[in-house]
Design a protein around this nucleic acid. Structure first.
Length: 739
DNA sequence: AGCACGCCGACT
DNA sequence: GTCGGCGTGCTC
């Protein structure tokens, strides 16, 4: 008698264990033998049904065999995840102390999780119905667009959605003709992908000497991490493109990760213009079906290049030959909830396992990466020259201590903006705070508009006029009278982009003022419209948040104004100064990119602060070295390894009690020592958020290994404790935000 | 996490 | 009389 085969499955629950199932009832023994890890399985779970990932088949279970239920179905015989990727995800779940099932489900496209078959969709097309075919040429004359579509279909038999769009026929016409019974939906013919004669659509550029030297240092076919260090416009992208060309020539695939706001149609177009191979993109603008399609194309090898944001690091690519991470210092590579992984760090692991090169590009590399380069673990490649012979911008630190500011602008700043506009140039004003003003204050009693659910002030917004909490989303009307003293003298306090926009409009009534922040670009295509307008090159003033600093090129901007260079200098988060430096340099880099030379004005109350001085007069490397020295003294990353145990509850005592227990347990596993020590429980930076009180316990270790060991044992202990069920808690390994 | 079951307050 | 509040218990 053959021994019973059981399925060990990881399910998307926070429960840190796997579940055993009997095979589906209709499954034959031979089919069962062929099952491999990574296959998706539909199973009953409690009163629900869910999709899990098969980890292995086995013959023994520690459960009562009577309790096992049969799985419902194997979704697809071919594994959704190949074994290398499955192992990477399981490794990451362990490293980040995240339940396996949760990690696996973050890594899988939503549709697969919902039980959809992992099949490529055939493109929908439209064709003429029998009735439609009976229509004479030149019919439907009264509607030119309808006639055009009819004519096109008479000529081409089948047209896809994009074919029709290319004829400038709106989607409503498709619906009208479908309703009239003239056309009908069908599928595209199965096309065999044609192998392009050349991988190039456009010949590669000739590399500069510096680019060539950098490129020559990249070794293919083996594990190697390169920090490609060069300012915006120094030609990093050309090095990426040629490195990609190299792996494509070997029949391999390339994975490119970019920051969340960096994945614009222009970015994708840049790769498509160069290469004649299929380029797939994974970004937040896609719907679930489009995501699955891009994912499937990468997995089948049809797509040779995949460009994506953070989660694209988990895409199966059977012939991956290189990983490139652009703007590697960007915070969006670390997920901030659920499975708190760092795509950049996992890229190092993935590249190492596959023995392929990884390129980390940045002009303002993270201190972790810089330190790795200094220690010789990564090679450090430099690109100094700015493309097109552009001169570096001239930096002016404007000391605003004691100066009268109108709407946040010093008089000199205002004059400089006016001069630049008069000379026919464009100006960029950077203020990293959206809304009209950070809060509302009562001039008579000092009342401040606090959020009823969080320990933060509510931001005043002007259009539409309301108070908005940027932490929980709570909104309310702006009061006419002070709720505390009934005074009507309520005034907005501080400066936001909306307010600066209004002030600039008032001062420069004949110049277009273009605001760029999350509010002004909320609508689809809003950003494209803005970019088009700016690229016309007419004089204008751009005012916006960090959205302006990342990714977009404004060739005609000759003056960059930074309203408040001090934000971040004294932040509670130890990474504040590092982030400030990266952001300021990025903004400053927007000036003078073309023939025109640029100028940057930084308004600051701390022009003589050593970090500010170093950053602007000695450069980023010196600035980074200064911070690194500090980090070494204060025992912080990258010299030490951190983890946080975060806990939140509606009643503060419970979260606090939970963390006290956690600390006690931690002490009993590893007594606190200089090698591995504990801090807390402490209240989070914003103690109450969305009506929940938040606390955290900090772990600081000289090495990764003991910290990981401690966390694993601690989580197990906590999981077994009843208190843990009454608390929303999570471990954050290598946290990027300490709040 | 979901989702059930289970025992106490204000309303169609 | 019910609808529904969230406490707690379970999921192979």
């Amino acid at each position: 008698m053959p021994s019973l085969t059981l399925l060990e499955i990881a399910l998307p629950t926070p429960l840190r264990r796997r579940f055993d199932y009997l095979p589906p009832e209709d499954m034959s023994e031979s089919e069962l033998q062929r099952l491999s890890a990574g296959v998706l399985v539909r199973v009953p779970f409690g009163h629900q049904e869910m999709t899990g990932v098969l980890i292995q088949t086995k013959t023994h279970t520690d459960q009562n065999i009577e309790k096992l239920r049969p799985a419902l179905a194997i979704i697809d015989q071919t594994p959704a995840l190949d074994s290398a990727l499955l192992e990477l995800i399981l490794w990451a779940a362990d490293y980040y102390q995240c339940p396996e099932g949760e990690a696996l489900s973050t890594a899988l496209p939503v549709l697969l999780r919902q039980g959809e078959a992992a099949e490529e969709r055939r493109e929908t097309c439209w064709q003429l119905t029998t009735e439609g075919k009976g229509l004479p040429a030149g019919a439907l004359k009264r509607s030119p667009k309808q006639a055009l579509l009819l004519e096109a279909l008479q000529a081409h038999n089948k047209l896809s959605r994009s074919d029709i769009a290319a004829l400038e026929i709106p989607a409503t016409i498709i619906k009208t003709l479908t309703d009239k019974g003239i056309i009908e939906k069908t599928f595209a013919d199965e096309t065999t992908p044609k192998t392009p004669a050349s991988i190039f659509r456009q010949a590669p550029l000739t590399l500069s000497d510096e680019q060539q030297i950098a490129f020559d240092q990249i070794s293919f076919g083996q594990f190697q991490v390169s920090l490609l260090d060069g300012a915006t416009g120094s030609g990093k992208t050309e090095v990426y493109l040629q490195a990609i060309a190299k792996v494509l020539e070997h029949g391999q695939q390339a994975l490119v990760l970019v920051p969340e706001i960096g994945l614009t149609p222009q970015t994708i177009a840049r790769f498509q213009k160069r290469f004649a191979v299929e380029v797939a993109a994974l970004h937040s603008g896609l719907n679930d079906r489009e995501r699955l399609d891009a994912w499937l194309h990468a997995r089948s090898g049809k797509a040779r290049i995949l460009i994506g944001t953070r989660s694209a690091i988990f895409t199966p690519m059977p012939a991956l030959g290189i990983i490139i991470i652009d703007e590697e210092h960007d915070g969006s590579f670390k997920q901030q909830d659920g499975f708190r992984y760092s795509a950049r760090d996992l890229a190092v692991v993935r590249a190492n396992r596959l023995q392929i090169p990884l390129i980390l590009g940045s002009a303002t590399a993270s201190l972790e990466t810089l330190n790795n380069a200094q220690q010789g673990r990564y090679q450090h490649l430099h690109l100094h020259a700015r493309a097109g012979n552009a001169k570096p911008a001239e930096i002016q630190l404007l000391d605003i201590r004691g100066q009268t500011l109108t709407e946040g602008f010093a008089l000199d700043t205002k004059i400089a903006i006016g001069n630049e506009i008069a000379a026919g140039n464009q100006v960029l004003v950077f203020l990293n705070r959206r809304g009209y003003a950070p809060t509302l204050e009562c001039h008579d009693c000092g009342w401040l508009a606090n959020c009823p659910h969080c320990d933060v002030r509510m931001t005043v917004h002007q259009t539409p006029r309301h108070l908005h909490c940027h932490h929980c989303g709570h909104q309310r009307p702006v009061p006419h009278k002070c709720p505390s003293c009934k005074s009507s003298r309520l005034q907005p306090l501080g400066q936001g982009t909306e307010r600066s926009e209004i002030a600039l409009r008032d001062w420069f009534p004949n110049t277009p003022i273009i605001r760029v922040d999350r509010d002004s670009t909320r609508n689809k295509n809003a950003m494209d419209k803005i970019l088009n307008e700016v690229h016309q090159g007419e004089p204008c003033i751009l005012i916006g948040t960090q959205m302006l600093a990342k990714g977009h090129h404004f060739a005609d901007v000759t003056l960059v104004v930074i309203i408040d260079a001090d934000a971040g200098l004294f932040s509670t988060d130890f990474r504040g100064p590092e982030r400030m430096g990266q952001l300021l340099l990025q903004v400053a880099g927007r000036a003078g990119r073309a023939e025109k030379s640029g100028r940057v004005i930084l308004q600051s109350h701390h022009t003589d602060h050593p970090l500010v001085q170093t950053l602007f007069f000695k450069g980023y490397q010196a600035f980074a070295d200064l911070i690194l020295q500090e980090r070494q003294i204060t025992q912080l990353p990258p010299f030490r390894y951190l983890a946080l145990l975060r806990a939140e509850t509606k009643r503060p005592e419970i979260a606090l009690e939970f963390l006290k227990l956690a600390r006690h347990e931690a002490e009993s596993i590893f007594p606190s020592s200089p090698q591995l020590n504990y801090l807390g429980p402490l209240p989070a930076m914003i103690e109450r958020r969305g009506d929940r009180f938040r606390f955290q316990l900090q772990f600081n270790s000289a090495q990764r290994k003991p910290l990981h060991l401690l966390l694993t044992q601690l989580v197990e202990k906590l999981d077994a404790n009843a208190l843990s069920k009454r608390v929303r808690w999570a471990v954050d390994v290598d946290p990027s935000e300490m709040g």
